[in-house]
């Protein structure tokens, strides 16, 4: 009897142990390693020769003087803010429509809406590049000699080469790619709201808008918040798409922070400096999460 008791005591730990070991070795340990790399002056060549000199916090000091860093941080905030607003907003709209019982075939729509989310960012990047490309693109070909599209300004060819619009094009592409996740999250939220609440409000003569504002939105708030947090995290880390479409160009106009880290580390070969930038990105991520949580708390207490 006693033996049996002590055996069950260790089972829960035994079950999580493999996961903990893998996560420690492949996420936490590299993160600690990253911190030590960030204290070194180390290039790709140094890495191969097993060199690299400790320079204290010099890399972090240099970040503040680095105009490309500030540029990439600004781009990251534009890209993340607009993408998150778009994805969560459209996600909420589409999930609400799909939740309505008078809509037929929601499964088919859901399946179609999932497609951009499940395809590789490489395929996504090429397909959108071919739409906007100046010489080969679908859009320039469509707008060529088409008076209506010409009038609307669609004949331009510099979608991906004009520094003042390229980031917004990338936002549109990212909204296209990521909204499905928000649809899934908000659908789950809507399913958690009991129908009886709507039925009693209908007896009182509430309009659709009133029902949405006074019933749906408050009850959906936890889902919206977790959606905002997760989408923000994911979006700060979206750089494969940008790397493939513009590479961060023209002239760093679409270089977001995560892409700057990658370019700095692997194109310029500045591993030490890139490691310090990557910890700054982590701090930015954590700060934004804490801000969301503080916002939620202040809402709940007021």
């Amino acid at each position: 009897m006693k033996k049996r008791f002590s055996k069950t005591k260790y089972i829960p730990i035994l079950l999580i142990l493999p996961a903990i070991v893998m996560l420690f070795l492949l996420i936490i340990f590299p993160l600690i390693w990253s911190f030590f790399t960030s204290l070194k002056r180390m290039t790709l060549l140094d890495l191969m020769l097993h060199k690299g000199k400790y320079i204290g916090f010099q890399n972090y000091v240099n970040i503040f003087k680095d105009s490309l860093f500030w540029n990439s941080l600004k781009n990251a905030f534009i890209f993340v803010a607009l993408s998150v607003i778009g994805q969560v907003g459209f996600g909420l709209l589409l999930a609400s429509i799909l939740h309505d019982k008078s809509i037929k075939g929601p499964g088919i729509f859901r399946a179609i809406f999932l497609i951009p989310w499940i395809i590789s960012s490489v395929v996504a990047a090429y397909s959108w590049t071919y739409i906007f490309d100046a010489n080969l693109g679908f859009l320039p070909a469509l707008a060529y000699n088409n008076p209506i599209l010409k009038f609307l300004g669609f004949e331009r060819k510099d979608w991906l080469t004009n520094p003042s619009i390229v980031i917004y094009i990338l936002v549109v592409i990212n909204i296209w790619k990521g909204t499905a996740f928000s649809i899934l999250m908000q659908s789950a939220g809507l399913q958690s709201i009991p129908d009886s609440l709507y039925e009693s409000s209908e007896v009182d003569g509430a309009t659709t808008l009133q029902k949405f504002v006074f019933i749906t939105l408050p009850l959906l708030m936890p889902f919206i918040l977790i959606n905002l947090i997760i989408t923000t995290m994911i979006t700060f880390n979206v750089y494969d798409l940008i790397l493939l479409i513009t590479g961060g160009g023209p002239n760093h106009a679409s270089e977001v922070l995560s892409l700057y880290i990658y370019n700095r580390g692997f194109s310029w070969g500045d591993l030490g400096y890139a490691a310090s930038l990557s910890l700054v990105l982590l701090i930015v991520n954590l700060t934004v999460t804490v801000l969301y949580l503080v916002f939620l708390r202040s809402r709940e207490t007021s």
Binding site: L47, F236, I261
Partner: peptide, 22 residues
């Protein structure tokens, strides 16, 4: 803690990965 790990950007650990596995 495990949930927080999901939030660590790949950009933050790809460099040590390169180091480590190298």
């Amino acid at each position: 803690f495990i949930l927080a790990l999901q939030m660590i950007p790949t950009a933050s650990i790809i460099i040590p990965f390169y180091n480590m596995f190298g």
